[in-house]
C-alpha cells in the first residue's frame, strides 16, 4: 500500500510540481485551444468560400476548389504543416502559432467545404424549384430557403470537425510549437517517465472532447425539436 502511494506521489511531484512543471501543461493546453480556435475560424471561412465556388457556376473556380480539396485531403496534414512552416512561410517571421493556425485552417477548410456542400445538397431540390417558381433569383433562393435549412444539416458536422481539429493539432510539435502534446514530451524528457505526462495529456484531450461532444448532443436535440 505504502509503495503504491509513494509511486503516485512521486509521479505527481516530479511531473507536475517540481520546477512548476504543471505550468507546461497549462500553457500547452492554452496553445492547443488557441490553435484549434483560430484554425476553426479560418477553416470555416475557407470551407464556405470553397463550397460556394464548388456549387457556383463559374467553371474555373469550381475546378480550383475541387483540386484544392483533393490535394488537401489526399496528403497528410503533418506534411502540409512542415511544408508551410519550413518552405512556404519559411522566410517569414510570423509567430509559430500563426503559421500553425494557417496550416490547420487551410487543411480544415477542405473538409468543411465538403460538409457545407453535402449539407446544401441534402436540401430537397423541390425547395429550390418552389423558390424559383415564385420568382426568386438563385442567390435569393439560397439565402432565404436553402441555406437556413442547410445550416441544420451542417452545424452538427461542423462541431464534430472542431473536435477532430483539436486532436489533429497534437502534431504542432513538429514545428516546435509548445502545444499540449509537446508539453507532455518536454516533461517526459525531464523526468524520464513516459506514462504519467502522456496519460495526463490524453486525459485532458478526452475531457475537452467529451465536453464538446456533450454540447454537440445538446445542439442536435435542439435542432431536431424545431422540426
Amino acid at each position: 500500500m505504502n509503495s503504491i502511494y509513494k509511486v503516485l506521489s512521486d509521479a505527481i511531484y516530479y511531473n507536475l510540481i517540481r520546477e512548476q512543471r504543471y505550468l507546461q501543461f497549462v500553457q500547452g493546453l492554452g496553445i492547443s485551444l488557441q490553435l484549434t480556435f483560430y484554425s476553426a475560424i479560418l477553416g470555416t471561412i475557407i470551407g464556405l468560400v470553397l463550397a460556394l465556388a464548388k456549387l457556383g457556376r463559374i467553371k474555373f473556380l469550381e475546378k480550383f476548389a475541387t483540386l484544392y480539396v483533393d490535394v488537401i485531403r489526399g496528403t497528410p496534414v503533418v506534411v502540409q504543416l512542415v511544408l508551410i512552416y519550413y518552405a512556404i512561410l519559411g522566410s517569414s517571421s510570423l509567430p509559430k502559432i500563426v503559421v500553425a493556425s494557417i496550416a490547420f485552417g487551410l487543411n480544415s477548410g477542405a473538409y468543411v467545404c465538403e460538409l457545407i456542400r453535402a449539407g446544401i445538397m441534402a436540401v430537397d431540390k423541390g425547395q429550390m424549384e418552389a423558390a424559383r417558381s415564385l420568382g426568386f433569383s438563385y442567390s435569393q433562393s439560397m439565402a432565404y430557403i436553402i441555406i437556413p435549412q442547410a445550416v441544420k444539416n451542417i452545424l452538427p458536422a461542423l462541431v464534430n470537425e472542431f473536435i477532430v481539429l483539436l486532436k489533429e493539432t497534437a502534431i504542432a510539435g513538429y514545428i516546435a510549437l509548445d502545444d499540449l502534446t509537446r508539453a507532455g514530451n518536454i516533461v517526459r524528457g525531464r523526468t524520464f517517465d513516459a506514462y504519467t505526462p502522456f496519460i495526463l495529456v490524453a486525459a485532458i484531450y478526452l475531457y475537452i472532447t467529451t465536453i464538446l461532444s456533450w454540447m454537440l448532443g445538446k445542439l442536435e436535440r435542439r435542432l431536431r425539436e424545431s422540426d
Binding site: D124, G126, Q127, E129, A130, A131, R132, S133, L134, G135, F136, S137, I145, P148, Q149, K152, S226, D227
Partner: peptide, 19 residues
Amino acid sequence: NRLRQKVGMVFQQFNLFPH
C-alpha cells in the same frame, strides 16, 4: 425571375418551406 412572378406553380410534393 420577373416573368415567373406572373406564373404560379403548384407541385406534386407541395414543396412548402419547412423552416
